[in-house]
Design a protein around this nucleic acid. Structure first.
Lengths: 235, 235
DNA sequence: ACCTGAACACCGTTCAAGT
DNA sequence: ACCTGAACACCGTTCAAGT
């Protein structure tokens, strides 16, 4: 059921490959689409390029740097929505970003951890900040708000990607976070978890995306009402 | 500069160790305090207990399960604040949780990824939910809000833990996210990142904790004003 | 029945040696 | 000068064999 070792093998490129940062990231993305980002390792990328792992370090500083590069390349495909109210455009852009993370296995988890600084990611940040400014949000608030919005969407995507890792889905197995929580509540009992036990149904309701949608709304609603702390600029 | 292979070696326990889930987690925590959670591996825990890695799998299902167990044990030390307004108590409890994540190297990053379901973590969730209910927040909103609050604090702790991994600190080095962002903005230029370039100072201001503090306030402010979507309970 | 030695199948990263 | 083979120092997990 598993493909042979090199999904991008010399069969696809009979001539010697040119070897460049671009080529490395290309191969990494192909590998990710085929098997998920956590199988995109220095050694596998090197193997797909018919060379040793040391060669990759000429173009990319580390494995996490490679993963960050992949994320940035993928994010570069996002387009800023044009029509409609600024809140709707924020929601559309965040939705598109979430969908992007969702279609590339393992990418969301990585994005949750890396704090990416590539040009495309900064472009996304800038676009969202622009929309908030358009909505009259003050720049300092706006930046922190964008931070938070991206975090929420990324976390939702990572959570949504949780269950079946390779298989279709494994109900009740480890990885089924919802069932684990339900079991945990039952195990502790209503004495130790009075509020959770009383409201378990509503507390565990909704998909990660529904939750994220509400959270985004709540953040936007709250941002306009919360003043910044004193410390605003640091030298 | 590096300690010998087993920080918890047979020198500390000259007699045969009893071997139990408790003992395994104890050793894991000791190892984490000494070297950080990402050095808490099955093999090292096994070595510290003078046995082979296979033995650990009798008590813990996997490495991430072990890390989750460590988190839960550490969180169990949190106490719910008693006096004051509910908002202040929420903030105090979140602050304590953040400080906890902050004092154990590598723990925040792990917490960001695992979605823990241990009794202590559920207890923290329950306590926060209780405080929101006390503040008149509706249970469904409250649960999603607690989710978001914990996410924000965890992400702040993970970000704060970024810079010097082993060394004191390495300014300008990879890992200095702030400098990387600044460099990225400069590299793209004000044409491609108009809003970020215009507001770079204020956008990059504040520590992760200051940012998280504001975000928590904004979330609490927004939660009271955002209605739930239609889907509330699922069977 | 319960535990574990040894093996399998991988990793990231470095550096001395080659072209 | 630039690239990389080979080595170093690890991993998680499994399973057949031991007690």
């Amino acid at each position: 059921m598993q493909a042979p070792t090199s999904p991008v093998s010399r069969r696809e490129r009979p001539t010697k490959p040119p070897l460049s940062k671009e080529a490395v990231v290309d191969v990494a993305i192909a590998l990710m689409r085929a098997e998920g980002l956590d199988r995109v390792t220095m050694r596998r990328v090197a193997a797909a390029l018919d060379t040793g792992p040391a060669s990759i370090y000429v173009y990319v500083a580390s494995t996490v740097a490679l993963h960050a590069e992949v994320l940035d390349r993928v994010v570069a495909d996002l387009a800023v929505p044009e029509g409609g109210a600024w809140q709707d455009r924020v929601q559309q852009l965040l939705h598109a970003y979430g969908a992007l993370l969702d279609t590339h296995r393992g990418l969301a988890r990585s994005a949750l951890v890396v704090r990416p600084t590539g040009p495309a990611m900064l472009g996304l940040f800038d676009a969202l900040l622009g929309l908030l400014l358009e909505g009259g949000v003050e720049p300092g608030r706006g930046s922190w708000c964008v931070d938070l919005l991206l975090l929420v969407v990324t976390a939702a995507a990572a959570e949504h990607a949780e269950p079946g890792r390779d298989d279709v889905d494994a109900p009740g197995e480890p990885g089924d976070g919802l069932a684990a929580v339900r079991a945990g509540i039952a195990a502790s009992g209503p004495d130790r978890l009075p509020h959770l036990a009383a409201h378990a149904d509503v507390a565990l309701s909704g998909t990660p995306w529904q939750r994220a949608g509400w959270q985004v709304q709540a953040i936007l609603a709250g941002a306009a009402r919360s003043p910044l702390p004193e410390t605003e600029v640091r030298p």
